[in-house]
């Protein structure tokens, strides 16, 4: 008993000040990319380097990066000789629409809160999540689980993972949706009381990620269940996901 108390004292209070304060992201973290216009005629170095066709030259010639396909591998950043692609450490990556994930030059960013009052009233104080892994590589699943640890403690905000879909407000899907999980995914979704919400967590769930195009996967959940929240990343850093969930609930926890 004494040992247990001593260990408790030694380990101390370790819950992070995030999200009340901005998170401390790793120095080399690849977050929100900034793009610049004015690319050289005919240059497609960024698109050639990208493993998932996330970046391309738009009709007006400027670069356009789809976070929903991006693995945040920085290949485009390294390939661009003129520095028109630069990944910042900004962790606020999620969007409420698929189109909202597309980045173009000159786009600013603000912490967008849940715009729908109805949704906010429903889940603003309590969000019960049923997670469904559908072809995920375990990285997304592990970093979802991490939000349960005392360091992130998402329970503080009324967010909880539940075992039964019947107890859930939403399902959080990870993985490119393997054909073999399609039926189980649909059945789980059918068991969620309405109105239910769908969260696509990780680049695979949004677009299929690196597995897009494989005949054994459905290229993500986007065309199957039309998600209400898209959280990009491979996998999304826990701070990215927690920020996204809290914004989805419509809660503002700090001024920035």
């Amino acid at each position: 008993m004494l040992k247990a108390l001593l260990a408790r004292m030694r380990q101390g209070y370790r819950t992070k000040p995030f999200p009340y304060e901005p998170p401390q992201m790793p120095e080399r973290f690849a977050g929100l990319p900034e793009l610049a216009a004015g690319c050289a005629e005919g240059c497609a170095a960024c698109a050639d380097a990208c493993p998932t066709e996330a970046i391309r030259r738009a009709a007006d010639g400027s670069p356009e990066l789809d976070l929903g396909r991006c693995l945040f591998c920085r290949r485009c950043e390294r390939a661009c000789a003129s520095g028109h692609v630069a990944f910042t450490r900004q962790h606020d990556l999620a969007a409420f629409t698929r189109e909202g994930l597309v980045r173009r030059p000159g786009m600013g960013y603000s912490h967008v809160l849940q715009p729908d009052d109805g949704i906010r009233r429903l889940i603003g104080r309590s969000l019960k999540i049923r997670q469904v892994s559908a072809g995920g590589c375990a990285a997304c699943e592990l970093d979802v689980n991490v939000l349960n640890t005392l360091a992130w403690d998402m329970g503080r905000f009324g967010i909880q993972m539940v075992a039964s879909p019947r107890h859930a407000d939403c399902i959080l899907v990870t993985g490119p949706v393997s054909r073999n999980m399609l039926l189980a995914l649909r059945k789980t979704w059918d068991a969620v009381p309405r109105p239910g919400f769908v969260i696509a967590c990780g680049t695979c769930a949004i677009s299929g990620g690196i597995y897009a195009g494989s005949p054994q996967v459905c290229d993500g959940v986007t065309d199957i269940l039309k998600p209400d929240l898209y959280v990009p990343g491979c996998p999304p850093h826990p701070a990215v996901l927690l920020e996204a969930l809290i914004r989805f609930m419509g809660r503002r926890l700090r001024n920035d």
């Binding site: 493993p51 189980a184 597995y211 494989s214």
Partner: peptide
Amino acid sequence: YQHRGVERMLVGGPSKRTPF
């Protein structure tokens, strides 16, 4: 349930996708 067709995707590589 997690079958994604990995080995099929690796055929024809190494490509820019293979390491991922």
